[in-house]
Design a protein around this nucleic acid. Structure first.
Lengths: 355, 355
DNA sequence: GTTAGCACTCTCCTCCTTAGAGTGCTAACC
DNA sequence: GGTTAGCACTCTAAGGAGGAGAGTGCTAAC
């Protein structure tokens, strides 16, 4: 009995080829794949009976499964995993599409804020899955610029620009005895920019200690500075700033999500910020493309989908993540190629910004 | 034949009460309403036969319809419209919920940027439909503050704060012969703030003409100022800046969207920015709460949903819109009450900001 | 080790029947 | 006149039977 012998062993080349064929067939047709269909459509040079033996073997290894006795095989998550690991020749994105994407990035305003959104949109349209992207963020952000704009006698808008590109806005109430005019605010902002320029939250807190309480401008600067430190610290602590997604309609069209309760799960998945943050952190840490297939995701609502995520940005400075989310029955090879290209492009753009 | 007589005439009180009963019953049960069910659950003091006569009459008037001969009645869009018009006693949001919402608004950072998102979230959770909100925007925005932050020798980040609260960011390339340092940028920003403080795009363009080309700072200021004018003009021209939505999962749970193709329509509806912009414009123009029911929406994908939208903000300054999107089978009375409360709260908050 | 042959299993589709809900009409009633 | 009971009629939804078809797993021969 051929299949018993291999229960625990590694797969021979032919079995691998057939696993591959099953997956590729299933990914395109979305219906269970039978032995005859494989013989017909792939040049296997064996009979359907032999293929059946190998399919049974693959099933024993937990790589394939059966919806029911008289149906063809469908891949398990473990099957997809083995398939993905075996892809060494990732299909690079066709040159035509590469050019088209570059052109689109050239069309938008030159600012990282636009790029990550466009990255999600692009990934969605190319892979026909949902595109995901987060802005590049640091865990050790540097203050770049502080600006104060008076709103009325007691309130001002604080505008904080981080070296990483983010802009934070907050309203501050200035409970001073006398009303404060814009020129005072300008002095406060100038003082803060001088003292806190290009420093982290931690360092900024130290520098604020030197401000004197008996001087009006310095006292105000101290108050505003403390608020700045708080905002930057909160930014540092957050796992992700925002996950932008596009092309959810693509995922809705997949036949496996025809029942609306399955679809609901996908949407709650996208609202599971905590888990997405975790994944993004893991991808940013690994520094390379990562794939999460079905049950490899802990949250229940994520177990019908796969993610292909890649980091971009400058390690040690700011890291963001781009990727796609689709059904586990996904064109992994194309997804990997596309995500790889887009993350590379984002790297180039960010590099260009800092050069 | 009673029903023939009334084909074109107005409805008597009893017919109105029965229309109301049908709608309220259908809204809660989501199944066609029969004559017996109405007699059982509502104190109509007539027999089911009489109710049947009136139902036939309402159907002739186009206010009700039949899925098939042996089913109960369901309201048409015209029926909902008549019902909505007849609601004079909108249920105000219960005091407990009002307090809860006020508390939530107190928890977030005091900034309009956070408010409109929270408004959408709140509307979604209270009405169990999708909550929508746009930031308040003007068609005649005033420049409040300009800031330039150098990125490298040839590029700077332009930060533009509008009186309306929006912040715009753009990257500008300074193709000057010599590299430009931050102190030059500060001079340019100071000059621009002095010249363009609190003016509209149109006025700003005029004022830029006075800048001399032979002075380096003024020449730079002119270039940056032109960019500012362009950004503000684009902002002015856009119908809406952004529509934030939350609680889509609520809509997904409605039984009428159990088939995924209907659901897909709802999602494409939300991506129909052009039409949403049109609606928002109409609501902002009308200056009061407006309701769009099913087929009253021109786009096909919108014809299964209703919207209850209300403006907020300061007329002549900046106007935004908050509201809900749900199935046409919606608790209009509650939706109106909630939207009314939230828009009122937003008004209060904005007022407080400018006071 | 591979293959043809074949019994077997299970789904999916269609057709049919039945129960039930709700209608519209008629004729009687107040 | 409007209102009501009674009743035939219509249509859906649910359940069951039967057959086609796909695909398997096993056996025995190659």
């Amino acid at each position: 009995m051929a299949r018993r012998r291999r229960t625990l062993g590694p797969l021979d080349l032919r079995a691998q080829a057939i696993l591959r064929a099953v997956i590729e067939e299933y990914v395109t047709t979305a219906t269970p794949v039978g032995s005859q269909a494989l013989v017909d459509r792939y040049a296997l040079h064996v009979s359907s009976a032999t293929v059946r033996n190998i399919l049974a073997e693959l099933e024993m290894n937990g790589l394939l499964t059966h919806p029911h006795t008289s149906a063809g095989r469908i891949p398990t998550d473990a099957g997809y995993r083995m398939y993905v690991e075996s892809i060494t020749d990732v299909i690079p994105l066709p040159a035509v599409e590469q050019l088209m994407i570059r052109h689109q990035f050239g069309q938008v305003e030159f600012a990282s804020e636009h790029w990550f959104r466009l990255a999600a949109t692009t990934l969605a349209s190319v892979t026909r899955a949902a595109g995901l992207a987060t802005p590049a963020k640091s865990h050790d952000a540097h203050i770049r610029r502080i600006d104060l704009v008076g709103i009325n006698e007691r309130m001002a808008s604080l505008i904080l620009v981080l070296r990483e590109g983010s802009i934070k806005q907050a309203l501050i109430t200035l409970d001073s005895d006398e009303s404060i005019d814009q020129s005072t605010l300008n002095q406060v902002a100038a003082l803060l920019n001088e003292r806190l320029g290009d420093v982290t939250a931690k360092r900024a807190a130290v520098r604020l200690a030197n401000l004197r309480e008996d001087d009006r401008v310095q006292a105000l600067a101290r108050r505003v500075g403390e608020r700045v430190v708080k905002i930057v610290s909160e930014y540092d602590a957050a796992a992700i700033e925002e996950v932008f997604s596009d092309g959810l309609l693509n995922v809705m069209e997949a036949p496996e999500f025809a029942q609306s309760d399955k679809l609901r799960k996908v949407f709650s998945a996208l609202e599971n910020r905590a888990y997405l943050g975790e994944l993004v952190g893991s991808v940013a840490g690994a520094g390379r493309i990562q794939i999460f297939i079905g049950h490899e995701n802990q949250p229940l609502e994520m177990q019908d989908v796969s993610l292909v995520l890649a980091p971009y940005g400058r390690p040690g400075r700011a890291i963001g993540v781009v990727g796609v989310l689709g059904p586990t029955r996904m064109l992994y090879s194309q997804a990997i190629g596309t995500v790889r290209f887009v993350s590379g492009l984002m790297n180039e753009l960010v590099e260009h910004l800092y050069a």
